[in-house]
Design a protein around this nucleic acid. Structure first.
Length: 268
DNA sequence: ATGGCCGGTGGAACCGGA
């Protein structure tokens, strides 16, 4: 089973590029981020006519996540538990049943910039960096709950985390950035410490593999990228990992997103 | 060598992104 993640940076802007990639890549399941659309505005017919079931968790203008699946999507839930006040659409879950049932979590983790710190170095309460770290703590709790239920799962999406220096062309440029600061990386490491496997790094240790290139400053032409779109696999799912790749070439096409798809092939 | 964007909203600039 081929499962992909793709931050499309607006569904309206990607009505041509996304179906074109789907037709080529033929993923069984796709989690999308930044659909930037309310549910009623999402062009589900484009995907339904290709045999996908469609579930969306959208909002006006910003954020928004979705799942496309050729297999039925069961027990769909919207939103990351842990804060009823949080109105940002960044989390969606559904169960897909192949040889075994697997819980798919699609996520758009907050960016966290600008970083605002108090005099003692803690994030300013209510600021964007504070929101990012609190959101990651909620995600940690969700992973712990799924593990305690012994539910095989994966968490895929735009993590807005550069895990290691090897995951950036210019790591020195990101030291103070919310995507790579110590607190962000520590929170990400806490997820790994639960026993989750990061699919891409389970397959290669090589540097120079990126999933995002800024639209600005000729980043794509200079291959000035960062790797921030990830798959974390629970132990049972990690045992089924056959492959994980980044569809880099998509970034050089007509009217691309600033992210490219990343996918795993699982023996499910 | 240098500087350099894009999407959504709403109907001009501005916000947000990474």
């Amino acid at each position: 089973m081929k499962i992909a993640t793709f931050n499309i940076n607006g569904i309206k802007a990607r009505v041509n590029a996304l179906p074109e990639w789907l037709d080529e890549a033929q993923p069984d399941v796709v989690v999308l981020q930044e659909i930037k659309s309310v549910d009623e505005g999402f062009p589900r017919e484009i995907f339904e006519e290709r045999g996908y079931n469609v579930e969306t968790h959208g909002q006006k203008s910003f954020n928004g996540v979705a799942i496309l699946s050729k297999l039925p999507l069961e027990d769909v839930t919207l939103g990351l538990p842990g804060d009823p006040e949080d109105e940002q659409a960044r989390w969606i879950e559904a169960t897909v049943v192949g040889k075994t049932a697997i819980r798919i979590c699609g996520l758009y983790l907050p960016n966290g910039n600008p970083v605002e710190l108090t005099a003692d170095g803690t994030p300013v309460s209510g600021g964007k960096y504070d929101y990012k770290l609190l959101w990651m703590a909620r995600m940690q709790k969700r992973a712990e709950d799924l593990l305690s239920q012994e539910m095989p799962f994966l968490m895929a999406g735009d993590y807005n985390i550069i895990p290691q220096a090897e995951d950036a062309k210019r790591p020195e440029a990101w030291h103070e950035d919310a995507l790579h600061r110590p607190e962000s990386r520590a929170a990400y490491q806490c997820l790994l410490n639960l026993g989750l496997t990061e699919a891409f790094r389970a397959r290669t240790q090589a540097s120079g593999h990126y999933s995002f290139w800024d639209y600005q400053a000729g980043a794509w032409n200079r291959d000035d990228g960062i790797r921030i779109d990830h798959f974390l696999l629970s132990p049972q799912v990690a045992d089924l990992l056959r492959d994980c790749q980044i569809d880099k070439e998509i970034r050089g096409r007509e009217k691309p997103s600033d992210h490219v798809p990343v996918w795993v092939d699982l023996d499910i």
